[in-house]
């Protein structure tokens, strides 16, 4: 085969219509974004609960949450994803069997969102816990002195006041979530990395497709960065600019 780089690149392979694989790659990117969004949202929910539980919960809850965050932060995501993927689908199937239904077909999307969400939950627990601790205690005490209920304090004082402290960490977690979706390729979910490998494998244009996928991931990161900067300036309005 010729070693001339100009002939090695066949741009037609990236065309959007079926002879090219561009449409397939974009579909994979869409799947990746869906999982990242879903997993991130689930992680935020778990993280908010986890952070409040770790700070204000009872001793047993605090310890259990500590075990959760310790395990997730010490074990590779790849291993966690495999464990959660099999354990989650197994548990769900046993549950439906116990309730009298047959085994259900779990969509890859739901399973992917679940595993990414559980992993992100532990990360955002830690980020949000730090942000909540940065809220001056006097503000929370004042709210309590006004006679607000704990949920009211959370909704009116703690959550809005911690947001500027949490946003830089949370935006990093979003970037991590988008990159973690690539790991789902190992369990066979057709997100961007896996479809790229399939496209590359069937056309033998490995370098072209992997570079194209890299450009898509990079574009996702850069666009995210712009959005994050807008959100950050909005959340920090009225605050002294950081030195």
């Amino acid at each position: 085969m010729a070693a001339d780089p100009a002939t090695l690149i066949n741009w037609g392979l990236l065309a959007l219509e079926p002879p090219g694989w561009g449409g397939v790659l974009l579909g994979g990117l869409l799947n990746s974004i869906k999982i990242a969004l879903g997993g991130y949202a689930l992680g935020l929910l778990l993280g908010t609960g986890g952070a409040f539980g770790k700070l204000y919960g009872g001793p047993v809850l605090k310890d259990l949450l500590e075990v959760y965050t310790t395990l997730v932060r010490a074990i590779p995501e790849l291993v966690l994803i495999l464990l959660l993927y099999y354990a989650g689908t197994d548990l769900l199937n046993q549950l439906t069997a116990a309730m009298g239904y047959g085994p259900v077909d779990i969509s890859g999307l739901a399973a992917g969102i679940f595993v990414i969400g559980v992993v992100q939950g532990a990360y955002s627990t830690e980020v949000l816990r730090g942000a909540i601790k940065a809220v001056p205690a006097g503000q929370i005490e004042a709210a309590r002195a006004y006679g607000m209920a704990p949920t009211q304090i959370m909704r009116r004082i703690t959550l809005p006041a911690m947001l500027p402290h949490a946003i830089p960490g949370l935006s990093n977690l979003w970037l991590i979530a988008t990159k973690d979706t690539a790991l789902l390729a190992v369990v066979g979910f057709s997100e961007l990395t896996l479809v790229t490998r399939q496209a590359a494998g069937s056309t033998k244009a490995y370098l072209l497709f992997f570079c194209a996928a890299g450009a898509l991931y990079l574009a996702l990161t850069l666009v995210s960065n712009i959005v994050i900067r807008i959100i950050e300036t909005r959340a920090r309005r009225g605050m002294v600019a950081p030195a």
């Binding site: 690539a182 490998r197 490995y206 370098l207 992997f210």
Partner: peptide, 20 residues
């Protein structure tokens, strides 16, 4: 490097450069 997944970089090097 920080904007793309490690798995993709790994496969780019192994399959991409490895085939080149």
């Amino acid at each position: 490097i920080r904007g793309t997944p490690l798995l993709l970089q790994l496969w780019l090097l192994y399959y991409g450069l490895g085939s080149l």
